[in-house]
Design a binder for these strands. Structure first.
Lengths: 358, 358
DNA sequence: GTGCTATGGTAAATCGATTTATTACCTACA
DNA sequence: TGTAGGTAATAAATCGATTTACCATAGCAC
């Protein structure tokens, strides 16, 4: 870390006071701008300048409300203290939580960040990283987005799931996640378990799906194609889960449990189940994924696999800054694994009976 | 608008290609950097340069993947094409929706933005605007945040509710909002209506409260202090509504309807009502405010006063850029009013009976 | 008196563009 | 022949810092 920790704004003067430039400050002090700059930045070159003078400089800087022009500084130093965040969209739920973790850490370290959202448009996913680099960001965090190629600057992907040179992946232990959820259902007596698979564009879809299959096999659970359905709409509302669950119900294949791709779709699924006369959890147990804020406040509360989303944001920011400020650019972690947690609420119950065919 | 509309990245070259500087490009062309700069920027000074040369320059720029250094350009032009967004926190719901509207418009216009969240800390609210200005933002959007003083650069506040010089306020028509909600309850036969007032730090709290009182009087509805309670926690989870509703219930004052400050607290309130054995909407009708994405997917769906949050974000961005690019800085709109919409879902019903005292 | 080392600074180059003032050449016209 | 005007550029200043290389002066040892 090159910047001091803690509140980065403690010494800011009040808003509104006009601020002056280095030249004026130097003139006012009767010193050269070189001297003032050295003192202000506490750079090693300032060690021959007596303490008394240093104090005089700093006092004047405070009084006259000197604020260095960061554009000029960045130009010279080739450092912007800015990073870029790429994500599918600023939605409720997933992205908001991750972003809030990222912001926490970055601001604390004196970095600002740009946010760009691509809404799954391939051209934007391709172009935004270079657009960000043109804005001189020092690193990139990609959230639920597969970076198409090496970026040239340090990058961290949250749920990126692809080995791209230069990119550190932050991933959930999906095997553990699958284990937690399936074991819970198995212990509750469920055997006919429906699955909602994620959209193709979501970077978690494939890996989670594979983990699910592998764990199901271990546990002796059958994943029936007839009880499997995939999200397709790119909306971020529960609507997406609602639609596919209705389709699922039309198949008339009985099931007693439903494992949704995420909380958002689980919420829509519950709605669809209810409308078709099925009670949750009495007739069908539902498990979500993510544990977004509103999951706890569904009725019934949503049983779900909790991803530590905020923490993943913090870890991403932390890892990225460590890389940005590391002298050895070529060394970096390839992957950081975080653990899910299983949160049992009211949407799951012991199996009572199979939903009968009509 | 100084920038062309439409997709700002259409002409970007592929990621990864190394990019060169103006000097190198000029050398490669056998021209001076001045000439190249004039051509690239299509500035008026380029009119004496023959078309053939212009094409040659542009072709080379494309081929060699020339990308101007935006720090250098900003330094010289004193324009950063960046704006700052100040908000309480990046939460689900309110902030996420507004932010997504802001982002849409800004990126389309070629602007990027910094986000800072202050979590209601007075020192941060005070300092962030000047920190943003040090980062050379050209304007500020404050969301649900009362700016403490004039900023020196154009600013737009969403639900700012205070006349600050230089700040355009984007506000909801709270009178209409109160009308829609109270009339709905009145028509449904409710007379004992409980109210959850917002936290003191929320900039909408006071104005909405006053509107509520004034409209209640018009309609002949009594707002009973014993049925009034105020949010206090600064959390953004439904917990806040849950806690105060439990307190409200402890008072043992009967009521048949509850008008919550926002959807988040309404969701918590419903939880508390249910736990105390009251059904929604059979025993108590609940109305929220905002219409966040998950409001529609509550069970029952939440009846609510819809704020056009996304649109408010777009309007804020639009207004701010218009001001930033206007030659007459001293002229700007003081206030822009947007209309709420009343969304009837399952959480309200006709009154059947008063909840009896125990 | 000479040489050497601190002390206390400063001049000037630099980062990478933009922009103004200027040059050099050519043509046309009075 | 002189000059006005257009064409095709360029040199150099500028934005506001950072940073390197250098310069005085003083004190001290020899």
């Amino acid at each position: 870390m090159v910047r001091s920790k803690g509140n980065p704004v403690a010494a800011s003067p009040p808003t509104g006071t006009p601020s002056i430039g280095l030249k004026e400050l130097a003139a006012h002090l009767g010193l050269s701008s070189a001297t003032v700059s050295l003192v202000i930045n506490r750079s090693p070159g300032a060690k021959s300048i007596p303490h008394a003078t240093q104090e005089r400089v700093r006092a004047a800087a405070r009084e006259l409300n000197y604020r260095p022009n960061l554009m000029a500084r960045s130009l010279r130093q080739k450092r912007s203290f800015t990073i870029g965040v790429v994500l599918p969209e600023i939605s409720e739920g997933y992205a908001a939580l991750v972003l809030s973790g990222i912001e926490d850490y970055l601001l604390q370290e004196g970095y600002f960040y740009f946010v760009v959202s691509h809404r799954h448009r391939a051209d934007l996913i391709e172009e935004y990283p270079s657009l960000l680099q043109q804005r001189a960001v020092e690193g990139i965090i990609a959230v639920d987005t597969v970076l198409t190629g090496p970026t040239g600057i340090p990058a961290v992907a949250i749920s990126g799931h692809r080995q791209v040179p230069g990119v550190t992946n932050i991933v959930l232990d999906h095997n553990l996640a699958a284990h937690l959820a399936l074991e819970h259902l198995q212990k509750s007596g469920h055997t006919r378990i429906a699955m909602i698979k994620g959209q193709d564009f979501s970077s978690d879809t494939e890996i989670r799906w594979r983990a699910l299959h592998s764990v199901a096999e271990q546990l002796g659970i059958v994943i029936d194609d007839k009880l499997t359905i995939q999200l397709d709409s790119d909306s971020s509302s529960p609507e997406v889960g609602y639609v596919v669950t209705r389709k699922l119900l039309e198949r008339n294949e009985p099931f007693t449990a439903l494992f949704a791709f995420n909380d958002i779709s689980a919420i829509g699924a519950i709605q669809a189940l209810r409308e078709s006369g099925k009670r949750v959890p009495e007739d069908v147990s539902v498990i979500g994924f993510d544990d977004i804020q509103s999951a706890a406040y569904q009725n019934p509360g949503l049983t779900t696999v909790r991803q530590p989303l905020r923490q993943m944001g913090v870890i991403a920011a932390e890892t990225l800054l460590a890389r940005v400020n590391s002298p050895r650019q070529e060394e970096y972690p390839n992957e950081i694994v975080v653990k899910p947690e299983f949160i049992v609420r009211g949407s799951t119950a012991n199996v009572r009976h199979l939903v009968s065919l009509p």
